[in-house]
């Protein structure tokens, strides 16, 4: 067995906890939803495309985003719901781009389905825009090599995995996930970094994502 490369700087695991802030904005029609999606804070777009993943982490794969869930479940526009649910979030490297894609998807649908604009939800079923306030905290866990890294991955909260895989990439616009970045720059293992970066985390439950990451890393040890 080859000796493990030991990094000069360890990977320091952080965790991210979120608090939901109400914006007071609500939509009862597809038209209102569209207009509000254009103007709500980025933290709200982030919330509605990622909350489901965290709150329903046992559901798998591909949990729908809140927009898709509401458009399908409440307005009964199943085709649009499917299009929204299948937006390939991993392709977008910023909330701005993701927002533009959602807007374009709804606008395109409305062009061919003008009647969809006339549907109203009941008042208790309106879409409420909420935003995620994220708190990032360093944990006491760190790793200098892949063995330690895999061990920590087994112990940390899924919030921590979530933070390093989803939030740092999309919301903090770091281009790649934190794990791949450290494996490449500190351990010089481009192949493994690439393998991790290639995962589409949106198609796993968070627990399955944890297991998959551990499996990929342990294979390299």
């Amino acid at each position: 067995m080859a000796e493990l490369i030991r990094a000069k700087e360890p990977f320091r695991f952080s965790t991210r906890l979120h608090l939901s802030e109400l914006t007071g904005m609500r939509a009862a029609t597809l038209g209102q939803l569209l207009e509000l999606i254009k103007v709500v804070p980025g933290a709200s777009i982030y919330h509605h495309t990622h909350r489901f993943l965290q709150q329903h982490q046992y559901l798998s794969p591909e949990p729908p985003n809140d927009f898709a869930f509401w458009v399908g479940g409440i307005l009964g526009e199943n085709e649009l719901a499917e299009r929204l649910a299948s937006i390939d979030t991993i392709q977008y490297s910023s909330i701005r781009e993701l927002r533009e894609k959602i807007v374009a998807t709804i606008e395109e649908y409305l062009e061919g389905n003008a009647m969809a604009k006339l549907k109203f939800s009941r008042s208790e079923e309106e879409f409420h825009f909420i935003k995620s306030v994220s708190f990032i905290l360093p944990t006491n866990y760190q790793a200098y090599d892949l063995k330690e890294f895999a061990e920590v991955l087994k112990k940390i909260t899924i919030d921590s995995i979530y933070f390093h895989v989803f939030e740092s990439r999309l919301r903090l616009e770091k281009k790649t996930n934190d794990f791949s970045y450290w494996v490449e720059t500190s351990l010089g293992d481009g192949k493994l970094a690439n393998e991790i970066a290639k995962l589409d985390p949106y198609t796993y439950t968070l627990e399955n994502l944890r297991k998959t990451l551990i499996r990929i890393i342990e294979k390299r040890i």
Partner: peptide, 29 residues
């Protein structure tokens, strides 16, 4: 287990207290 137990409630209240000192959307503690 993930969303409605007392431990989540405790966590949210502590985050709420911290939010009073941090108006931003991404807070580095």
């Amino acid at each position: 287990r993930n969303n409605f137990l007392l431990t989540r409630h405790l966590r949210d209240y502590m985050l709420l207290f911290l939010s009073l000192y941090h108006p931003e959307d991404v807070v580095n503690l």
